[in-house]
Each structure stands twice: as C-alpha cells, then as structure tokens.
Design a protein around this nucleic acid. Structure first.
Lengths: 209, 209
DNA sequence: ACCTGAACACCGTTCAAGT
DNA sequence: ACCTGAACACCGTTCAAGT
C-alpha cells in the first residue's frame, strides 16, 4: 500500500448543513461496526456504505478513499493514548528517576491494554496499512514529552538528554507493541507489568551522569 | 487481511520434474523483483506471473494465493536473521553479563541493518499483511536462545530467567522495529547503536539476584 | 448542497482445455 | 505432469443524473 497524501486523510468537505454532519458521523460509526463485526479483511466500501445507510457515492464525497475511513479510527485511538500520557506526565513532573520510570511504564501499559477490543482492531488495521506517518508523529511527541520530564527530575542529569528520551520512547513503544502483536496472553502481559518498569528504571539510571 | 492457514503458505506441490523446479524459482525471483521495483502496493499476481514468464494458472499451481508469495520472502529474511543470531549466541556462550548484553544488541542491530533494501521491503510487506504468526515464532525462538545464554553467564543468576529472556527479546526486537518503521535516519540508527547496548546491560544487571 | 447507483477499470482465483 | 488464458466474482472509485 502506498503512502497516501496526509492532506487527503481528513474528510473532504466540511458539512454545510446538518444533514451532511449526520452523514459523516453515520459513516464513522458504520466503519467501527464493520471493523469489529467482520474484521479488516472483510471491510469493503460497499459494506460500510450499506451499514451507514448511504450510497457509496455519498461516502466518497466525504472520504477520498478507503484508507481515510480507517485512518480516522487509528487517529482517534492515538489521541486517547496521547491524552493518557499527558495526564501521566503532569503527575510525574518533578518526580525522582525511579518514580518517573515506573510511572511512565505503568501509564503506557494501562493506555495500551485499557480498551483491548479497540487495540485489537487497531493492530488489525496496522497489519494492512502503512501507519508509519501517524506512528512517527506519535513517537516524536512522546520523545518531547519524555525529554521535558527528564529535565524536571531532581536527582538526574544526562550527557545527551535527547537521545535518552528517544531511546526510552522507542523502548516503551516497541516492547509493548512486540508483545501485543506476537502473543498477547495474560501471562505475557503480567510479565511485562513486572519487567517493563524495571527495564525503564535500569536504563535511565545507567544513562545518568 | 485474515490469518491464512499456515499449512497453505508453502508451495502446493513438490516438483516432480526439473521443469517445475525451475518454474518455482522463477516465480520466487519475479516476486522479489516486482517487490523492489514497484513496491507491495503494485505487486499483483498478473505482474509477478508476467515477470516470471509463466501464466497465472501455473503460479496458482504452486502458490495457493498471493500471500504465499510474500510470506516466502519474509520467511527467508527471518531465517537469515535467525542464522546471524545463532552465530552470535555461539560466540557469546559463557561470557559475562556485560559482554553478553552488548554483544546481543550489536548482533541484532547488525542483522537488521545489514540488508537495508530487503528490510525495507519486509516492512512494506508487514504493513499490508498480518505477520503475527511468523513473528511470534521468531520471538519464541529468540527467547529460548536468550534463556540458554543467560544460564551460561558465570556472573549472573536470575529469580525468573524465563521472564528475563522474554523481556530481553521483546525489548531488542521491539525497540529496533519501532525506530526502523517510524524514522530510520542515520542519526537515529547511530543513537540506537549507543543506547541499545546500554539499555540491555542495565536491564540484565538490574534483574540479577 | 447533497445524494444516487450504474458503469468502469482492475484484481485474485478457478478450471476446462491443451501439450 | 505441467501449463494456458479466458471467465468469474468481487472490489475501489467515478460521474452523469437526480432532488
């Protein structure tokens, strides 16, 4: 799948009348319903349009292509996670290194496992579409957030704070994703809950000067 | 995309005559060529068959569906990486914890960045297909390998060696994948080269009893 | 301003017919 | 034993015609 022009991933036109706003929302809901009921593999434009009670032509008036439907869902999920991490960041600002590392690991795991149904759906989408653009943006934001947190820790200084924040973001995001995609059993998630905070703290402590 | 029956991912029939063995190899090569020249999004069964110089019908005699073509490529790449890690494992057996952690991190990074072209192609496939089955298998094998290595380290014992090996595999695999998918610039790969060994060693040292 | 749905181009897969 | 390629079912997307 080729990378779509990001500008094309939002609805094409803003609703001018109440009628079309309702149409957009109906299409959104229909996409989620078809996704959860039939899976990504069975999600077709016809099926979504039918479920939404509109014609395919109408759907294409608001969403330029099938990808736009699915990216909408992904973006919303990423927004939820971002919100959760901002909350954690506020709580952890100024905390010592151990509290910070363990707090971030716990918050990340909570956010990723909170809505397991949605997460499953998202990974399904990720399996069929190129999500490097939205994922890249999310990673960058996380890195900046971590960098500010590291700067606020009273008991730590770093030779290269940017690199440490970058590594922490990659470690957190990558490790959890790997487990959730490869084999997300309860036993493995429990292992993560024990080992991930430990790994984060150990790394930050080792990087400190 | 629905998860395909793993039994169907290998070629359908074994070649009985030299002619058909040549056909299979021609199809394999054509798949790689189309993949590198046109990308996953433009890879169609017709195009591969044309490039291989056979009809679509012939192709379907050996590969039950389009996915089988691509899974073949992925499996080969995974095999190469596995081989590289086995080599590293042999070298590192009995080494102390620091040597072991840093050696594994370096070997993993080397394997993943060695053939950057193939890796790119693989991530392209990963973006369009559900690779949880082969990835899960690869993760399991890596965990077992790491567990044996940890047992051989003369300067370390662990309360739960299985969990530590599991976490190390997820950390290594996940962190590198995240960076390579989100933003694999030279600067970021260099950061990984510095921070990843450090993170691995710090985690193992912290997990030691 | 918004909606319809037949029509178009293309794709993955099959199978009767060939050598 | 192996190969062919027209045919089939289905998909994403468009656009002339409607209200």
């Amino acid at each position: 799948m080729n990378r779509p022009d990001p500008a094309l991933l939002q609805p094409r036109k803003s609703p001018q009348q109440a009628r079309s706003a309702a149409t957009i929302e109906a299409i959104r809901q229909a996409t989620i319903q078809v996704l959860l009921a039939d899976g990504v593999g069975r999600l077709t434009t016809t099926r979504v349009a039918e479920r939404a009670g509109v014609s395919v032509g109408t759907m294409y008036q608001y969403y330029p292509h099938k990808q736009a439907l699915l990216f909408g869902i992904v973006e919303k999920q990423l927004l939820l996670i971002e919100e959760a991490m901002r909350g954690a960041s506020d709580r952890l600002m100024g905390a010592d290194l151990k509290t910070l590392a363990e707090g971030l690991a716990a918050a990340w795991l909570d956010a990723k496992t909170a809505d397991i149904v949605s997460s499953r759906a998202i990974y399904g989408i990720a399996a069929e579409f190129d999500l490097s653009a939205p994922m890249g943006r999310a990673a960058k934001m996380m890195t900046e957030m971590f960098e500010a947190l590291l700067a606020s820790a009273p008991d730590a200084r770093f030779a290269d704070r940017g690199s440490v924040a970058f590594m922490l973001a990659a470690l957190l995001g990558g490790t959890v994703r790997m487990v959730m995609e490869a084999d997300p059993t309860d036993a493995n998630l429990e292992r993560l809950r024990v080992e991930l905070p430990r790994a984060c703290h150990a790394y930050l402590a080792a990087a400190r000067i």
